[in-house]
Design a protein around this nucleic acid. Structure first.
Lengths: 125, 125
DNA sequence: CTAATTGCAAACAGTTTGCAGGCGT
DNA sequence: ACGCCTGCAAACTGTTTGCAATTAG
């Protein structure tokens, strides 16, 4: 069921993504959006995220062993870097997959996910 | 705290890994081990998995958007294939990461995870 | 006005923990 | 027989859902 009304809660959440162009966790989103709408509830965050995914404004970013994060959907194919220090996730442009995969017989690949883990520039790489 | 006693529950769980050489979910493990120990509890599965990780017999396999799986730790660096049909996970030997990453300044990479997604040979690749 | 949307609390799934009884050593 | 280990149930986290009250259009 797509959205029909534009509320201050939804506007605040969209604004959070515009101001923070990297994959954000629901907790980060709630915390940032509460600057605009102090008594915002987590359920509303999740519902709004799902609305925005349905409207193809957002896409899910799933990293191994991490809770789902969300980022704006208007991006080209890319991969992610997860900082072990500050726990933030950054986009890495371009594709990091080898050209020649050389898989065993019979495997058909539809998609691939690559996550690099380490230290980001802010944390003194 | 490492294990000190060898119980029939633990033996059954180790046997499951020996018989199924691919990353297994806790639910799969419980279900398979109950063939040997019918009233095995899920808490015991998790505790045994954690014992085995501590003893470096097992390692965790985290895939994007999936619950953790576990496989024997005696493997070389490799990546994983996740079948969208049967939901099983397979090991892929060798490294699939590009040689020349060409990252922005300041990012230091410690580890990387690659997951391919698609159809496996059993599901008519 | 009307009903879509919110906020709270309850429901859920996956995982961990506390505790009394069972069982390896 | 000592005390580690199990099984159950309760606790906990991340996410979803039910429902009465709010509010956008």
């Amino acid at each position: 069921m797509p959205r029909q009304r534009r509320t201050k809660q939804q506007i605040a959440i969209e604004e959070v993504f515009r101001r923070n162009p990297r994959p954000l966790s629901p907790h980060e989103i709630l915390s940032l959006a509460r600057d605009d709408v102090p008594n915002l509830g987590m359920a509303t965050v999740y519902r709004t995220l799902n609305y925005m995914i349905e409207d193809q404004i957002l896409q899910v970013v799933d990293l191994p062993g991490q809770c789902s994060r969300y980022e704006l959907a208007d991006k080209k194919h890319h991969h992610h870097f997860h900082c072990l220090d500050c726990d933030k996730v950054f986009d890495l442009e371009g594709c990091l997959l080898k050209e020649d995969l050389n898989l065993p017989e019979g495997f058909v690949v539809k998609e691939h996910d690559i996550t690099l883990t380490g230290r980001c520039p802010d944390c003194g790489g």
